[in-house]
């Protein structure tokens, strides 16, 4: 999760998200589509969709948690009833909850 500058691949399988304090996160396009905001961005045909890079007005800690959720969601969203789904809620620390809530609302996750 450390900031590492990687040029996004041409087939945009990976999306780069930059937090407001300069950290970059890589996430698969599939996981990113779990967010209504990011999905819209990817399908819009704006610069973000061609470059696969987006800057979010969120702190790195919040961005990281959002990314974590998106990956979690991508993994378990289509889970059958037999599969055990771990509890994501306990991974949300209360200190972050408010910021995360606003981020979630903004990103439509």
């Amino acid at each position: 999760m450390q900031s590492e500058e990687k040029s996004s691949t041409k087939d945009s399988d990976w999306i780069k998200l930059r937090s407001e304090d300069g950290f970059t996160f890589m996430i698969t396009a599939k996981a990113a589509r779990g967010s209504g905001f990011l999905r819209g961005m990817l399908e819009s045909g704006f610069v973000e969709s061609t470059s696969g890079t987006c800057t979010l007005a969120l702190r790195a800690a919040v961005t990281e948690k959002v990314m974590e959720y998106l990956v979690f969601k991508a993994q378990y969203d289509k889970a059958t009833s037999k599969e055990e789904i771990p509890d994501f809620q306990e991974r949300i620390v209360p200190e972050l909850a408010l910021e995360l809530l606003m981020a979630a609302d903004y990103l439509e996750t």
Binding site: Q89, P94, A104
Partner: peptide, 23 residues
């Protein structure tokens, strides 16, 4: 099967609503 992040956050906030400092 997976709750939205927002609803989970609200749950967390709801749990700690007594303890506003923690937020």
């Amino acid at each position: 099967r997976v709750n939205t992040l927002a609803s989970m956050c609200i749950d967390v906030i709801g749990k700690h609503i007594e303890d506003v400092e923690a937020l």
